[in-house]
Amino acid sequence: MSHAEEPAFEAVGLGRRYRRGWALRNCSLRLPVGRVAALVGPNGAGKSTLLHLAVGLLAPTEGTIRVLGDEVRARAHPRVAFLSQDKPLYRRFTVADMLSAGAALNERWDAPYAARLVDDAGLPSRARVGTLSGGQRSRLALALALGRRPELLLLDEPLADLDPLARRDVMATLMAEVAETGMTVLLSSHVLTDITETCDHLVVLGGGRVQVAGGIDDLVGGHRVLIGPAHQLGTHVPAEVVVEARTTSRQATVLVDDPGLAPGPDWVKHDAQLEDLVLAHLRRGQLPDTEQVPA
């Protein structure tokens, strides 16, 4: 068992190159045990690549990646479960067949637990996977992932292409199990609002790199929005703390990552909103390297 000091997930200098170029580069990330972390970023940011690397579907081009203290290998870690974006399951299997497949393919398998999750989801055991709705298939895929009794659960866009009701069901099941077991979760999404209520940790991926990562409370508490006269921006706000600055001819609105900064009497300080903060970091991440240092 991994002890508390060992991160559940740790990437150092991780990179993966495809024929078309780097999908992920220079990615370093630590996720402490017990966190429920959201991995957010626009489409093509490298979220799926990072998760595929974590579960051994891809080999890293450079750098290292460890889960639950062990180097990731081709064979999936027995205590790590993965739920892929399109929830691919054998279409011609019945729900009962899928549960048997889970039992047959895993040494560590909690059959009564998986069966209970399937029952709770109201899935008819003789229905074929191909006939299930998107929401039902997600519930089945989640039951199969949880049936492995993971200590680290990786979910790739678990809510994409689900209707709002199904989203709520899937999220509620997931969070109930997380609360009960204390497992670490890393779930990716390109929609921030899906997950801010349920997650306590945030990783923002943009342009194949980690733009910002940390506890959500720390992140929000570590940023401030300053509004003040545009002409004082260069002199009163140190360039190295600026995440993003927007100016009109008179007024500057600046997101800074130094909460203690007090530029002067002409400036008003607001709490930062998580969504603004994420978007600001993402916009900064999309700039070419040379322009990344704020002017």
């Binding site: 579960v55 051994g56 579907l57 081709a74 064979r75 999936a76 027995p78 479960a81 993965f82 892929s84 399109d86 691919p88 399951l89 054998y90 279409r91 889970g102 393919l105 895993n106 040494e107 560590r108 895929a141 199969l144 492995r148």
Partner: peptide, 15 residues
């Protein structure tokens, strides 16, 4: 084609 290798290869069976 059906992307089920994402399921199969992430269970505890070696490749």
């Amino acid at each position: 084609e059906q992307r089920t290798q994402l399921f199969t290869l992430t269970q505890s069976v070696g490749r």
